[in-house]
Write a protein that binds this DNA or RNA. Structure first.
Lengths: 194, 194
DNA sequence: ACCTGAACACCGTTCAAGT
DNA sequence: ACCTGAACACCGTTCAAGT
């Protein structure tokens, strides 16, 4: 009956995995070090053995989210969709990556994949164009994901729109194709989450 | 010598103005209700007479920032620059507007101004196009503003780039002109702040 | 109409000490 | 190598009570 001392020992990986799962449950605003620690049956101070501070933990989560971006060579639109869908994999994923990414923008894997696809189709201004597409995808995905979450909590003004998501998909495809300077491929519905 | 009871009385406007000035000083992350109250020589609980909660106060600040967007009819590029410069007027302005704006995206003044400019130049898909431009501007401005702030605190990896800001200006112009479907006007340097 | 005072349930982070 | 316990300096918010 006595509360046995917890023998669970963790490493950087198990902490990050648990934090990522918690992010998906509670969202970025409620992802506190104390909640993460509670999920691991550990005192909050234990986390500081594995990560120097919260910002470093969040950066690790952002890295794990962007690491799932496919890197096989395809066209620009498919690459952009892959980035967007990776951001959609976890709740508030876009916002997390956006707010963590400023420090390493040029060297990101996402931009490299976009640049490759642009070069393959013979586009001009590959560096600037890939940056612009990435900025658009991050802004768009952040707004869409916020709206999805607000929607699911009934906390937004009435809309007479038939299907908001379909409209946002059109905006995404139009944006990427315009920025890529190429004629659009047929759209594919994303697997999005609030 | 006795700490006299403060006769200062405030209203919604004075609270918002003081909070906006504080935002510019300390940034969004350090903009707490308690700090805002201290700036007004008032107890934190006093703020809840004027605003129901922090989110409502932040929404008011976002409204004030976007209210300075010029609405005189011009071309799309000039309109987009006007939006970006309004976001740059206060520290973390882009991030604040981005994180506050999801609830009212279609009805925003910014998108209306972009749609007007697009119609004036005879563009197709005006609704989708104006949304895409707005998403791009918000994503781009948020990333640029974060990078500016990180730069000024020396907290980012070494870069051999000659001038990062010039590159980002090129990205902005390329993005807006591509999304507008129009040939670029000569670029104008922005008045940006960290 | 607008504010104080006190309280409640939280935060991130540090650091000595334990095993 | 990894964790506890205790502390420090903070948060947003509520609510009775004051003027």
């Amino acid at each position: 009956m006595s509360p046995e001392p917890n023998p669970a020992r963790h490493d950087r990986d198990s902490v990050a995995r648990s934090a990522l799962a918690l992010l998906d449950e509670v969202g970025l605003a409620d992802l506190s070090m104390r909640r993460i620690a509670a999920g691991l049956d550990v005192q909050p101070s234990a986390l500081y053995w594995h990560f120097a501070n919260k910002q470093e933990l969040l950066a690790e989560l952002a890295d794990r989210i962007t690491a799932t971006i496919p890197s096989e060579p395809t066209d620009v639109v498919a690459t952009a969709r892959g980035i967007r869908d990776a951001l959609f994999t976890y709740r508030d994923g876009a916002e997390l990556v956006l707010s963590t990414y400023a420090l390493q923008l040029g060297s990101s894997q996402a931009q490299t994949a976009l640049a490759d696809a642009l070069r393959a189709q013979g586009a001009a201004d590959v560096e600037d164009r890939s940056a612009a597409i990435l900025h658009f995808v991050l802004g768009h995905a952040t707004l869409v994901q916020q709206r999805m979450h607000a929607d699911s909590h009934g906390a937004l003004p009435e809309t007479d729109d038939v299907d908001v998501t379909a409209g946002l998909d059109r905006v995404f495809d139009l944006g990427v194709t315009a920025l890529a300077g190429v004629i659009s491929a047929p759209p594919t519905p994303p697997r999005a989450r609030a």
